[in-house]
Design a protein around this nucleic acid. Structure first.
Lengths: 233, 233
DNA sequence: CAAATAGTGTCTGTTAGACACTATCAC
DNA sequence: GTGATAGTGTCTAACAGACACTATTTG
């Protein structure tokens, strides 16, 4: 965006009135997912105000004038969960006219992925906490948040086909069995052990740590980690 | 969104003031692509007002209170091109703080695909018309429209891997060679003729028309059409 | 030892690339 | 006939699924 404002343009900007006509408002909603065992869970907040008072909702809020959309999503996520620097990606923008009964609100939805261990310090209460995704989908969430959650899972299914994105939801170190089980949960189908192992390793994104599971009652698997997690040796 | 407004909620909504604090504005920008020969072209409009006066831009405009995002995109597209019922899909939402020098404007970008023949009636002038995509990318477009165009091409490349989406850009009937050439243009690489033919036909989305090219100077190819174009054959 | 899973080797079916070949038009 | 492309058949390489087998732990 190379700007070279002319005199006429500067005058135009000086007299520009942004509020000549009513605008839709813009909010950001974040679907934060994690994995507990082999189940996906989503972070929900119980609404304390109308509309949808007392219903579960995705954490969200209005975009401020001086922050980008991604900054807004990160800000909201930190405010509600204390998390910083998690995987965060824009999902879709929901703009149906009646999606918010207060006024016209357009919501830019993001989704975030985080290992459960990072949520350990999270204060869970009746007002906020993790709910299994399968349960959340059967719950009437506030606004169109069921649709946002469904689209998040669609996106996750698509991503999983091309990259072992599951590690975003797992601890730093994990066995291939754990990763496979997670992928099976996301995709909703069983995967072939041999093929999964070969495909995942062939991508070269995972590296063996040399460490083994302990106390499993059977042959321990080796721990792997994502190659980009650049912890030396 | 099953609503069951309580008395308290109705009172809340009655007194809700949507304009308590300044909002970002929301616009929609549309990247309309078509194919001329084996080159992609994009529809651009020359801006008549500040900012970026006289620069080329994607057609766009503000979202009205009572229309959905997709409705807004379709409305704008029809207003600037006269086109209706074209392929239209949400691309991404651009919300950097400084992307519009007037005020904070968040743009929900859409992209549209249309055969060149449907643009035949389009009034082309110094102020609006088609520009080859390669040229547009080297031109300084208004706002962040270069980024929108680049992301559109990324999306198109991704789509082409999974469906013969090229027919959205071609006339109703087309030969497999035309479709292949278009895919090669989009992907920027040569494709194998035999493999392309098998892969595309195996998807079962194209049907042969029985009609042949004429006057090609070589063996004429058969015309195909997309199976969903339900012209009784 | 048994039980259970880790990890590897191999066969098979599918698919894309490569190549060769025949078919059909304009000239 | 020549030149050019359409369209098909077949071989091959890559790869995923399936299965079998060995390896390694706990108890």
């Amino acid at each position: 965006m190379p700007r070279r404002p002319s005199k006429a343009e500067l005058e135009f900007l000086r007299t520009y009135n942004a509020d000549e006509f009513p605008h839709p408002s813009v909010s950001v909603d974040v679907a934060l997912l994690t994995a507990r065992g082999d189940a996906l869970e989503v972070f929900l907040v119980r609404r304390t105000e109308h509309p949808y008072k007392n219903d579960w909702s995705l954490p969200g809020g209005f975009v401020q004038l001086e922050e980008s959309l991604e900054d807004a999503a990160a800000r909201l996520l930190e405010a509600k969960t204390g998390l910083r620097e998690v995987f965060l990606e824009q999902l879709y923008t929901f703009g149906a006219v009646g999606r918010d009964p207060r006024t016209r609100v357009i919501s830019v939805a993001y989704y975030a992925l985080v290992p459960l261990e990072q949520l350990a310090k999270l204060t869970v209460s009746d007002a906020r906490g993790l709910m299994p995704v399968t349960e959340a989908l059967q719950t009437a969430l506030a606004f169109d948040h069921n649709a946002i959650l469904e689209r998040t899972l669609d996106r996750l299914r698509g991503r999983v086909e091309y990259s072992p994105i599951g590690f975003e939801l797992l601890p730093t170190q994990f066995t291939l069995r754990e990763l496979q089980t997670l992928h099976e949960t996301i995709l909703g189908k069983k995967l072939n052990k041999d093929a999964f192992r070969r495909k995942i390793l062939a991508r070269g994104q995972l590296e063996a740590t040399g460490e083994l599971e302990v106390g499993m009652g059977f042959r321990p698997a080796e721990y792997y980690r994502h190659a980009r997690s650049g912890k030396a040796g």
